[in-house]
Deep mutational scan, measured.
Amino acid sequence: TELRLDINGREIKVDGADKETLKELLKLAEKNNDEKAIRIIRHLLER
């Protein structure tokens, strides 16, 4: 399955993203107070 998050109005594919990319996405999600995106990205970073 493909995991996509809508961050800042942009749909971004997050599964398969490297750790650096995920960290950047996490910063974006935190800036937007997007709890769902934050939770998902943190979960991916823990893998």
Score class of each variant (00 low, 15 high):
residue 1 T to Y: 11
residue 1 T to F: 12
residue 1 T to E: 12
residue 1 T to M: 08
residue 1 T to C: 13
residue 1 T to D: 13
residue 1 T to I: 07
residue 1 T to W: 14
residue 1 T to Q: 10
residue 1 T to R: 04
residue 2 E to P: 06
residue 2 E to W: 10
residue 2 E to L: 08
residue 2 E to K: 04
residue 2 E to N: 06
residue 2 E to M: 11
residue 2 E to R: 03
residue 3 L to E: 07
residue 3 L to R: 02
residue 3 L to G: 05
residue 3 L to Y: 10
residue 3 L to A: 04
residue 3 L to S: 03
residue 3 L to N: 05
residue 3 L to I: 14
residue 3 L to P: 02
residue 4 R to W: 15
residue 4 R to Y: 14
residue 4 R to F: 14
residue 4 R to N: 07
residue 4 R to P: 05
residue 4 R to G: 06
residue 4 R to C: 07
residue 4 R to K: 13
residue 4 R to M: 14
residue 4 R to V: 15
residue 4 R to E: 10
residue 4 R to T: 15
residue 4 R to S: 13
residue 5 L to S: 02
residue 5 L to V: 12
residue 5 L to Q: 02
residue 5 L to N: 02
residue 5 L to M: 04
residue 5 L to K: 03
residue 6 D to W: 15
residue 6 D to F: 15
residue 6 D to H: 15
residue 6 D to G: 03
residue 6 D to S: 14
residue 6 D to K: 12
residue 6 D to Q: 15
residue 6 D to T: 15
residue 6 D to Y: 15
residue 6 D to R: 12
residue 6 D to L: 14
residue 6 D to E: 15
residue 7 I to L: 12
residue 7 I to R: 01
residue 7 I to E: 03
residue 7 I to P: 01
residue 7 I to Y: 07
residue 7 I to N: 03
residue 7 I to Q: 02
residue 7 I to G: 02
residue 7 I to V: 07
residue 7 I to C: 07
residue 7 I to T: 03
residue 8 N to K: 04
residue 8 N to E: 06
residue 8 N to Y: 05
residue 8 N to P: 02
residue 8 N to G: 15
residue 8 N to S: 06
residue 8 N to I: 04
residue 8 N to D: 11
residue 9 G to A: 02
residue 9 G to T: 01
residue 9 G to N: 05
residue 9 G to V: 02
residue 9 G to Y: 05
residue 9 G to W: 06
residue 9 G to K: 01
residue 9 G to L: 04
residue 9 G to M: 03
residue 10 R to K: 14
residue 10 R to W: 14
residue 10 R to A: 14
residue 10 R to I: 15
residue 10 R to Q: 15
residue 10 R to T: 15
residue 10 R to H: 14
residue 10 R to G: 10
residue 10 R to D: 11
residue 10 R to C: 11
residue 10 R to Y: 14
residue 11 E to A: 03
residue 11 E to F: 09
residue 11 E to P: 08
residue 11 E to M: 04
residue 11 E to G: 02
residue 11 E to C: 09
residue 12 I to V: 13
residue 12 I to P: 02
residue 12 I to D: 02
residue 12 I to Q: 05
residue 12 I to C: 04
residue 12 I to R: 01
residue 12 I to T: 05
residue 12 I to K: 01
residue 12 I to Y: 15
residue 12 I to S: 02
residue 13 K to Y: 15
residue 13 K to S: 12
residue 13 K to D: 12
residue 13 K to F: 15
residue 13 K to W: 15
residue 13 K to A: 11
residue 13 K to P: 07
residue 13 K to Q: 12
residue 13 K to V: 14
residue 14 V to G: 02
residue 14 V to D: 02
residue 14 V to R: 01
residue 14 V to H: 02
residue 14 V to M: 06
residue 14 V to I: 09
residue 14 V to Y: 02
residue 14 V to Q: 01
residue 14 V to E: 02
residue 15 D to P: 04
residue 15 D to K: 06
residue 15 D to H: 09
residue 15 D to A: 08
residue 15 D to S: 09
residue 15 D to F: 06
residue 15 D to N: 13
residue 15 D to W: 08
residue 15 D to R: 05
residue 15 D to E: 06
residue 15 D to I: 07
residue 15 D to C: 06
residue 16 G to N: 10
residue 16 G to M: 14
residue 16 G to F: 13
residue 16 G to Y: 12
residue 16 G to C: 07
residue 16 G to L: 14
residue 16 G to E: 13
residue 16 G to A: 15
residue 16 G to W: 13
residue 16 G to K: 14
residue 17 A to I: 07
residue 17 A to P: 03
residue 17 A to L: 12
residue 17 A to Q: 10
residue 17 A to N: 14
residue 17 A to F: 09
residue 17 A to Y: 07
residue 17 A to V: 08
residue 18 D to Q: 03
residue 18 D to P: 03
residue 18 D to I: 03
residue 18 D to E: 04
residue 18 D to V: 03
residue 18 D to K: 04
residue 18 D to L: 03
residue 19 K to P: 08
residue 19 K to R: 13
residue 19 K to E: 13
residue 19 K to V: 13
residue 19 K to Y: 07
residue 19 K to T: 14
residue 19 K to F: 06
residue 19 K to C: 05
residue 20 E to I: 07
residue 20 E to L: 04
residue 20 E to K: 10
residue 20 E to M: 05
residue 20 E to C: 07
residue 20 E to Q: 08
residue 20 E to F: 07
residue 20 E to Y: 06
residue 20 E to T: 08
residue 20 E to D: 11
residue 20 E to V: 10
residue 20 E to P: 05
residue 21 T to W: 06
residue 21 T to V: 08
residue 21 T to R: 10
residue 21 T to F: 10
residue 21 T to M: 12
residue 21 T to A: 14
residue 21 T to G: 08
residue 21 T to E: 07
residue 21 T to Y: 09
residue 21 T to S: 11
residue 22 L to D: 00
residue 22 L to T: 00
residue 22 L to I: 03
residue 22 L to E: 00
residue 22 L to C: 00
residue 22 L to H: 00
residue 22 L to Q: 00
residue 23 K to H: 09
residue 23 K to G: 06
residue 23 K to A: 07
residue 23 K to W: 06
residue 23 K to M: 07
residue 23 K to D: 05
residue 23 K to L: 10
residue 23 K to Q: 10
residue 23 K to P: 01
residue 23 K to Y: 11
residue 24 E to T: 11
residue 24 E to I: 13
residue 24 E to H: 11
residue 24 E to Q: 12
residue 24 E to R: 11
residue 24 E to M: 14
residue 24 E to V: 12
residue 24 E to C: 07
residue 24 E to S: 11
residue 24 E to N: 10
residue 25 L to C: 04
residue 25 L to V: 04
residue 25 L to H: 02
residue 25 L to T: 01
residue 25 L to N: 01
residue 25 L to P: 00
residue 25 L to W: 08
residue 25 L to K: 01
residue 25 L to I: 06
residue 25 L to M: 07
residue 25 L to Y: 09
residue 25 L to S: 01
residue 25 L to A: 04
residue 25 L to G: 01
residue 26 L to M: 08
residue 26 L to T: 00
residue 26 L to K: 01
residue 26 L to N: 00
residue 26 L to I: 03
residue 26 L to D: 00
residue 26 L to C: 02
residue 26 L to G: 00
residue 26 L to P: 00
residue 26 L to H: 01
residue 27 K to G: 07
residue 27 K to F: 11
residue 27 K to M: 11
residue 27 K to Q: 11
residue 27 K to I: 12
residue 27 K to D: 08
residue 27 K to L: 12
residue 27 K to T: 07
residue 27 K to R: 11
residue 27 K to H: 13
residue 28 L to A: 06
residue 28 L to C: 03
residue 28 L to S: 04
residue 28 L to F: 07
residue 28 L to P: 00
residue 28 L to W: 13
residue 29 A to K: 00
residue 29 A to S: 03
residue 29 A to Y: 03
residue 29 A to H: 01
residue 29 A to F: 06
residue 29 A to P: 00
residue 29 A to L: 04
residue 29 A to W: 01
residue 29 A to G: 01
residue 29 A to R: 00
residue 30 E to H: 08
residue 30 E to F: 08
residue 30 E to T: 09
residue 30 E to G: 04
residue 30 E to S: 06
residue 30 E to P: 00
residue 30 E to C: 07
residue 30 E to I: 12
residue 30 E to L: 14
residue 30 E to Q: 12
residue 30 E to K: 11
residue 30 E to W: 08
residue 31 K to S: 11
residue 31 K to W: 13
residue 31 K to N: 10
residue 31 K to V: 13
residue 31 K to E: 10
residue 31 K to M: 13
residue 31 K to G: 08
residue 31 K to P: 01
residue 31 K to Q: 09
residue 31 K to F: 12
residue 32 N to I: 12
residue 32 N to R: 05
residue 32 N to Y: 15
residue 32 N to Q: 12
residue 32 N to W: 15
residue 32 N to L: 15
residue 32 N to T: 14
residue 32 N to F: 15
residue 32 N to D: 11
residue 32 N to A: 15
residue 33 N to M: 09
residue 33 N to R: 12
residue 33 N to I: 04
residue 33 N to Q: 09
residue 33 N to T: 05
residue 33 N to S: 09
residue 33 N to G: 12
residue 33 N to F: 10
residue 33 N to E: 09
residue 33 N to H: 11
residue 34 D to L: 06
residue 34 D to F: 03
residue 34 D to H: 03
residue 34 D to Y: 04
residue 34 D to E: 06
residue 34 D to T: 02
residue 35 E to N: 08
residue 35 E to W: 12
residue 35 E to L: 14
residue 35 E to G: 07
residue 35 E to A: 11
residue 35 E to R: 09
residue 35 E to T: 12
residue 35 E to D: 10
residue 35 E to H: 13
residue 36 K to R: 09
residue 36 K to M: 11
residue 36 K to S: 10
residue 36 K to G: 09
residue 36 K to V: 11
residue 36 K to H: 13
residue 36 K to Y: 12
residue 36 K to T: 10
residue 37 A to M: 05
residue 37 A to Q: 03
residue 37 A to G: 03
residue 37 A to C: 02
residue 37 A to F: 05
residue 37 A to W: 04
residue 37 A to R: 01
residue 37 A to I: 06
residue 37 A to E: 01
residue 37 A to N: 07
residue 38 I to E: 04
residue 38 I to D: 01
residue 38 I to G: 03
residue 38 I to C: 14
residue 38 I to L: 06
residue 38 I to T: 06
residue 38 I to K: 04
residue 38 I to V: 10
residue 38 I to N: 01
residue 38 I to W: 04
residue 38 I to Y: 06
residue 38 I to M: 10
residue 39 R to P: 03
residue 39 R to G: 08
residue 39 R to E: 13
residue 39 R to Q: 13
residue 39 R to S: 12
residue 39 R to D: 10
residue 39 R to M: 12
residue 39 R to H: 10
residue 40 I to L: 10
residue 40 I to G: 02
residue 40 I to F: 08
residue 40 I to T: 08
residue 40 I to Q: 05
residue 40 I to S: 04
residue 40 I to M: 07
residue 40 I to W: 05
residue 40 I to A: 05
residue 40 I to D: 04
residue 40 I to R: 03
residue 40 I to Y: 07
residue 41 I to D: 00
residue 41 I to K: 00
residue 41 I to W: 00
residue 41 I to Y: 02
residue 41 I to H: 00
residue 41 I to S: 00
residue 41 I to G: 00
residue 41 I to E: 00
residue 41 I to F: 02
residue 42 R to I: 12
residue 42 R to E: 08
residue 42 R to A: 07
residue 42 R to C: 09
residue 42 R to G: 05
residue 42 R to Y: 07
residue 42 R to L: 14
residue 43 H to L: 14
residue 43 H to D: 14
residue 43 H to C: 07
residue 43 H to K: 11
residue 43 H to I: 14
residue 43 H to S: 09
residue 43 H to A: 12
residue 43 H to W: 14
residue 43 H to Y: 14
residue 43 H to T: 11
residue 43 H to Q: 11
residue 43 H to G: 10
residue 43 H to V: 12
residue 44 L to D: 00
residue 44 L to Q: 06
residue 44 L to E: 07
residue 44 L to Y: 14
residue 44 L to K: 02
residue 44 L to M: 09
residue 44 L to C: 04
residue 44 L to G: 01
residue 44 L to N: 03
residue 45 L to Q: 02
residue 45 L to K: 00
residue 45 L to P: 00
residue 45 L to M: 05
residue 45 L to A: 01
residue 45 L to S: 01
residue 45 L to T: 01
residue 45 L to V: 03
residue 46 E to T: 08
residue 46 E to Q: 09
residue 46 E to W: 05
residue 46 E to P: 02
residue 46 E to V: 05
residue 46 E to S: 08
residue 46 E to R: 06
residue 46 E to H: 09
residue 47 R to N: 14
residue 47 R to T: 15
residue 47 R to Y: 15
residue 47 R to A: 14
residue 47 R to L: 15
residue 47 R to D: 15
residue 47 R to H: 15
residue 47 R to W: 15
residue 47 R to S: 15
